[in-house]
């Protein structure tokens, strides 16, 4: 069975700024693959190349068995794209939008109308099908946008940061839709800035930074390498920060706790949340170090990058 997406040494340069710098990526058919990275990591550029919107500077890419440069028409027949901004015709209503995209996928008039109705119902938009999209809320737009990407039940669906700017309810709706698609055998490539989102949806995750893949694995593998959770300790006396770092590091068996003198903070990855909390409290007390605050939390994207790459993510200056 061929891979749904195969990318080799893909590069793209805008002017003299490299957006992709030798990206390799393989996505097996019928899986949900997360592409995780900060702004400017090259996620959107990769999606635009894979959906034939952008010509790469070098390397090769194929989607659903077709080369994006040699046979873009064949690729377009097999993909769905949901970009970062809801790409809808605001002058038309929801039904007209889906009907338009259905017809442009060359469904017949009746098939397009039928599919539009089906998708409106599936995304709880049937009641507002006659309302112009210009009056839709952000969540409704996003749902309609997702529906538009599913008109033909694509082999490969590209979702570029599908939940950015959505409230928790809207995010939940999108997540549910992605899960049910995956259940139907659609291959999904999903870009996100949120580790949590990749964790919820993707079977495998590629971490991008500076236009390259810096890590890949299942979410569990990645978390095992980054430490699923972190413990943050704020000490009362800044002079005790170094001592506190050693004590906390020993208590949770972390090699390199991070310290932030400005916030009098020691932060370390932990594997077992409750055991780590108890051990840290006991160790601090035994060492006579007064803590102002102790908290357990999920790692931030920056910390994931720090652990995977040894450097903070490169921020796009733009």
């Amino acid at each position: 069975m061929t891979d749904a997406i195969a990318v080799t040494a893909l590069s793209k340069t805008f002017g003299d700024r490299p957006a992709l710098d030798g990206l390799d990526l393989t996505v097996a058919q019928g899986t949900v693959h997360g592409v995780l990275g900060p702004n400017g990591a090259g996620k959107t550029t990769a999606v635009r190349i894979l959906t034939t919107l952008l010509r790469p500077t070098g390397g090769s890419a194929s989607v659903a068995g077709h080369d994006v440069l040699r046979d873009p028409a064949a690729v377009r027949r097999r993909i769905g794209l949901v970009g970062q901004h809801a790409a809808l015709d605001e002058g038309l209503d929801g039904r007209q939008n889906l009907d338009l995209f259905g017809r442009l996928h060359h469904l017949g008039a009746r098939a397009a109308a039928h599919r539009a109705q089906e998708l409106l119902e599936r995304f709880s938009l049937a009641d507002t099908g006659r309302m112009p999209v210009g009056r839709y809320s952000g969540g409704m737009r996003r749902r309609l946008d997702l529906a538009a990407g599913l008109i033909t039940r694509p082999d490969v669906l590209f979702l570029d940061e599908p939940t950015t700017g959505l409230d928790p309810r809207g995010r939940g709706e999108v997540w549910e839709a992605v899960r049910s698609l995956a259940g139907e055998g659609t291959t999904v490539l999903l870009t996100t800035q949120y580790l949590e989102e990749a964790d919820h949806l993707a079977g495998r995750v590629s971490v991008l930074d500076g236009g390259r893949r810096v890590a890949e694995g299942t979410p569990d593998e990645l978390k095992a390498r980054t430490g699923a959770d972190r413990i943050d300790v704020v000490v009362r006396d800044a002079a005790q920060l170094t001592a506190a770092a050693a004590v906390v590091g020993a208590a949770v068996r972390a090699a390199h706790p991070v310290t932030d003198p400005d916030r009098r903070l020691v932060s370390a990855p932990v594997s077992d949340r409750m055991a780590a909390l108890t051990a840290t409290l006991r160790a601090l007390e035994a060492a006579g170090i007064a803590a102002e605050d102790i908290a357990l939390r999920r790692p931030t994207l920056d910390e994931v990058f720090l652990h995977l790459t040894g450097t903070a993510p490169r921020k796009d200056p733009a």
Partner: peptide, 17 residues
């Protein structure tokens, strides 16, 4: 301009037309 700005042109260009 509206079609370009709203990303609608990108969607059209990703369709098999």
């Amino acid at each position: 301009t509206q079609d370009v700005e709203r990303g609608l042109l990108d969607r059209f260009r990703s369709l098999p037309i």
